[in-house]
Amino acid sequence: MRPISSGILVAVALALLSPLAAAQILIVTSARGAIGELSRQQAEQLYLGRTRSLPDGTPVALADLPGGRVRDRFYEQLTGKNPSQIRAYWSRMVFTGRALPPQQAENVRELGARLMANPNLIGYLPAADADPRMKVLLELP
């Protein structure tokens, strides 16, 4: 029998430690906002800084949650990039002036306040934190 590689052991340990029923993440905007629909592809283009508006010309501002599990999972599911890839990617985009970084919300509650204040802002949060003032544009995964 071949010895089990340490890589497999690490992978198994990680799989056991991460909660299997990880909460769904929603992309939301204000219920009274300017954004009616958002496809997954549009969301990906926006959160990779490749575009700053919808195909109909509506400008879109982006909000980020602070660094952590929700943010890491959001980018992983939407863009397929892991946390270190997305950090390198965004530092390249920002420091060459390719794109302005998303606004950084302090937490989910503060994100809600920002969404109410800006009709063109979109953000993401765990499904359990959504409230009726928000419109759900996309569910991940």
Partner: peptide, 29 residues
């Protein structure tokens, strides 16, 4: 931004001669 997906920049920008010109100074990237 001139149109969805299209933007113009005027002034001093990075000279994009290489694939990785964008991260020339940003060694973290």
């Amino acid at each position: 931004t001139l149109a969805p997906g299209l933007s113009a920049r005027v002034g001093r920008v990075r000279a994009p001669f290489f694939m990785l010109s964008d991260s020339l100074h940003v060694n973290y990237a």
